[in-house]
């Protein structure tokens, strides 16, 4: 297919808008000091914590988000429209407010938090688990909404045929729905991971900021920006590099690799 030439102008504007700020970031970086700045113990700790928590959050989104997307797209439940709107909430809420919401639910004085403490002796705020929860909260819609759209576009014909051939509901889900969805799940997971990686507001509100436990890369970048902008820029570049690595390495394979 030949693309209409007119598309290239706005596309170039979009690319400029997306890429030039990163160029700006690069232009402010002292490249000679970069290795030293990004290999500081604080940066390495934050990087490692970011990777671990974002991966866990992405896994959590996969386990509960895929079923939710299927329910939203295929289910016939009352109040489904309301549910769909609720799923969008974390996208609209400022992350700091999302963090407060988590705090009011799972904090020491929230009813969920009291329950956890009384039943299991667990306190979530200021722990790495809180970081994962905050990331899952803000990142989940990216997976669910993408998958739901893909399910609707694909239609339910294959599933209906499988059912008429005698497949039980779970077999249909496992052998038909999931394989059809795989490319969308892949791209959804990349988006989810990227969003979790960049998460800042909900994390700092719900989990606080402590090196090694809750200080992820974005939190470290923000903290450094208060005093030492050069280090902050360096750490931000680390974040950019990590995100690019994940997106370029994983994305083409899962999306373009399968039909």
């Amino acid at each position: 297919m030949r693309l209409p030439a007119l598309l290239f102008v706005p596309a170039a504007v979009a690319v400029a808008l997306l890429v030039l700020p990163v160029v700006g970031l690069l232009s402010r970086t002292d490249l000679r000091r970069l290795p030293e700045l990004v290999s500081s113990p604080a940066a390495v700790d934050a990087l490692w914590l970011s990777v671990r928590t974002s991966a866990t959050a992405t896994g959590l989104c996969l386990v509960v988000g895929v079923p939710l997307a299927v329910v939203l797209a295929r289910g016939r439940l009352p109040g489904l429209r309301l549910l769909r709107a609720t799923v969008l909430l974390p996208l609209v809420l400022p992350p700091v407010v999302g963090g407060l919401a988590l705090l009011y639910l799972l904090g020491r004085n929230g009813f969920g938090g009291r329950l956890l403490e009384a039943a299991l002796g667990i306190r979530l705020p200021f722990t790495t688990v809180a970081v994962v929860l905050a990331q899952t909260f803000v990142a989940m819609p990216f997976l669910v909404i993408g998958l739901e759209g893909a399910l609707r576009t694909a239609g339910a014909r294959y599933e209906a045929v499988a059912a008429t051939l005698g497949a039980r509901p779970f077999v249909v889900f496992r052998r038909v729905t999931v394989p059809l969805l795989l490319p969308s799940i892949g791209s959804g997971l990349v988006l989810t991971f990227a969003r979790a990686l960049g998460e800042f507001g909900a994390t700092i509100t719900f989990a606080g900021n402590f090196p090694g436990t809750t200080q992820t890369l974005p939190l470290l970048a923000y903290q450094l920006a208060q005093s030492d902008v050069d280090s902050s820029v360096a750490v931000s570049l680390l974040l950019v590099a990590l995100a690019l690595l994940v997106i370029t390495l994983v994305r083409p394979r899962v999306i373009e690799g399968s039909p």
Partner: peptide, 12 residues
């Protein structure tokens, strides 16, 4: 348990 980046963080 947390080193906040602003006093408002400590207060909240």
């Amino acid at each position: 348990v947390s080193q906040e980046t602003a006093v408002t963080g400590v207060l909240s």
